[in-house]
């Protein structure tokens, strides 16, 4: 059993389980599925500094921070109990492209250690991808009023037109960054 669960789960198993999070949160606590708002709560809790956007009772939203804490524990349990013993399978075309940028280490499993690492903070491409990338996520998600969970899963589940617009733009921005900006940055 553990052996089967340790293998990567196919989309048709993971998809329904992730989708069930939407009705689960609605039924368990009348809560709307969304993860990025937790970052707003962190700001409101740590450094509200009289900024109107952070002046609200974040303690009422503590469920969201608890939910995110659960996600963190989930990641830990997945690696402790169900780690895939094999190397990750990556698309051959992508592998060839990455090799051209010197990214050849696939042993770190889910994330290329050639990119997301503390050492890379000192290089231009690392700085751009992890620091600027992170910044864009935080800024963009608040500007758009939600991230993949809030718009692409929760919003689309509620048949919201604005969430569809947001999702299309997520994909457009990602497409642009992955195919145009990233190859340029990685060639440094």
């Amino acid at each position: 059993m553990i052996e089967i669960l340790s293998k990567p789960w196919p989309w048709y198993i993971a998809g329904p389980l992730i989708g069930l999070t939407v009705p689960a949160l609605l039924l368990l606590g009348n809560k709307t599925f969304g993860i990025s708002s937790s970052m707003r709560h962190v700001c409101a809790a740590c450094l509200p500094a009289n900024i109107p956007y952070f002046k609200y009772d974040w303690k009422k939203e503590i469920w969201n921070l608890v939910f995110v804490a659960g996600i963190l524990i989930g990641g830990y349990l997945a690696v402790i109990c169900l780690q895939n013993p094999n190397e990750i399978i990556v698309n051959e075309t992508l592998k060839t492209e990455l090799a051209g940028y010197g990214i050849t280490d696939f042993s770190n499993a889910l994330i290329p250690s050639d990119i997301v690492s503390w050492e890379n903070l000192l290089s231009f491409k690392g700085l751009f991808m992890i620091v600027f990338g992170g910044f864009l996520i935080g800024f963009g998600t608040r500007y758009a009023g939600g991230c993949t969970s809030g718009h692409s899963i929760m919003g689309l589940s509620a048949l919201s037109l604005t969430s569809l617009i947001a999702t299309i733009c997520f994909m457009a921005g990602g497409f642009l960054a992955a195919n145009v900006i990233l190859p340029f940055i990685l060639s440094f």
């Binding site: 993860i35 997301v116 991808m129 990338g133 996520i137 935080g138 991230c147 993949t148 947001a166 990602g174």
Partner: peptide
């Protein structure tokens, strides 16, 4: 949604992860 969404999407591809 247009502007914020596109900015978010770029960050998603650059860092390879969204908030969750």
């Amino acid at each position: 949604y247009l502007v914020g969404g596109t900015i978010f999407g770029m960050g998603w591809a650059l860092s390879g992860a969204c908030p969750g």
